[in-house]
């Protein structure tokens, strides 16, 4: 186990290194600079600013400095938000994204697992077809379609919920964005659960439990569910990646102060340090969750040999 984890961590290092390198050179290849503004700076001032941030030195040298700083945990100052460091921006805005994503994945698991189990129990019944139909349609409706449609219906027309804004994370403000983020995940989770459940329900030890006369709910909670949910554990990483992508759209539409909204704006403004810091952070997050998923899987299913 320890060997497996350390091996995976070793693979993560070149990945993160690649992220840093790609991000650095792509940002620098972009035309324009963070110091472009409506008012043209005089050449002397621009030179001074560039020198202040060390951008007057050769690119390779800057790259070395940057990598060195990142290794020490220093992501540098934001080039646009003068009084903030990249770490501060991450610290201030990530909790919003985390809260949205976390609520969405919890909601999606609760709904998705229930639907999947019910569909598997009533296999080929009306409920099964209904759930699977919703699941198939659900993966085809992107977040940037559900979000505005839900705002139009529940926000603008019915006026039950606010159209957007964060409001300190009030429940009413959370409902729509979390629903939007959760819907595609519900579709996938219910499909995974149903498939896992059907397979498990056909296995011998469940038949034995039935033959022994255990009531259905004991069979489900005591035996079937934990085996049926195994595929979900390895879905953790991809789900996180999906939520991150979704958060870009959702935070834009609902005007939420999360990280996702920052990313596109910062990239457009050529805020080099912020963009690179966010990319590294996102990549690390996805890597960590993938690893966590694999470890959990191995802990829960002793048949899996990690190699």
């Amino acid at each position: 186990m320890l060997r497996f984890i350390s091996r995976r961590l070793l693979v993560a290092i070149p990945t993160l290194f690649l992220v840093v390198t790609l991000a650095f050179f792509m940002m620098r290849a972009a035309p324009g600079s963070p110091f472009d503004s409506d008012r043209k700076l005089s050449p002397e001032i621009e030179k001074n600013i560039m020198a202040h941030y060390g951008m007057d030195r050769p690119l390779i040298e800057q790259y070395q400095t940057y990598v060195g700083n990142v290794l020490r945990g220093d992501f540098g100052p934001s080039l646009k938000y003068k009084d903030k460091t990249v770490l501060q921006i991450l610290k201030e805005n990530f909790p919003v994204s985390l809260r949205l994503g976390g609520s969405a994945i919890l909601l999606a698991m609760a709904v998705g697992i229930s639907l999947g189990v019910m569909a598997a129990l009533r296999r080929n019944g009306l409920l099964d077809y209904g759930v699977m139909g919703v699941a198939i349609v659900g993966v085809c409706i992107p977040t940037f379609v559900t979000a505005p449609l839900l705002v139009l219906v529940f926000g603008s027309t019915l006026q039950w919920l606010p159209n957007g804004g964060w409001n300190g994370g009030a429940l009413a403000n959370m409902i729509l964005p979390v629903t939007v983020l959760a819907l595609p995940q519900v579709a996938i989770i219910s499909r995974l659960t149903r498939a896992g459940m059907i397979e498990v329900l056909g296995s011998n030890y469940i038949r034995t439990a039935r033959a022994r006369g255990l009531p259905l709910h004991r069979i489900l909670t005591g035996h079937a569910l934990q085996a049926a949910l195994m595929p979900l554990v390895s879905y953790l990483g991809p789900a996180a990646a999906g939520l991150l992508t979704g958060s870009l759209v959702v935070e834009k539409i609902f005007n939420l102060p999360g990280l996702g909204k920052f990313f596109v704006i910062s990239a457009l403004q050529r805020d080099y340090t912020v963009v690179m810091g966010m990319l590294i952070f996102y990549a690390g997050l996805v890597l960590a969750l993938n690893l966590l998923g694999d470890i959990l899987y191995a802990l829960l299913d002793p048949r899996v040999r990690l190699s």
Binding site: A12, T15, L18, V19, L22, A23, M26, M27, A241, L244, T245, L248, F263, V264, A267, V275, M278, L279, Y282, A283, V286, L287, N290
Partner: peptide, 10 residues
């Protein structure tokens, strides 16, 4: 393992 959509955006 890269969050690729972010690179596409970039």
């Amino acid at each position: 393992t890269l969050p690729f959509i972010f690179f596409v955006i970039l």
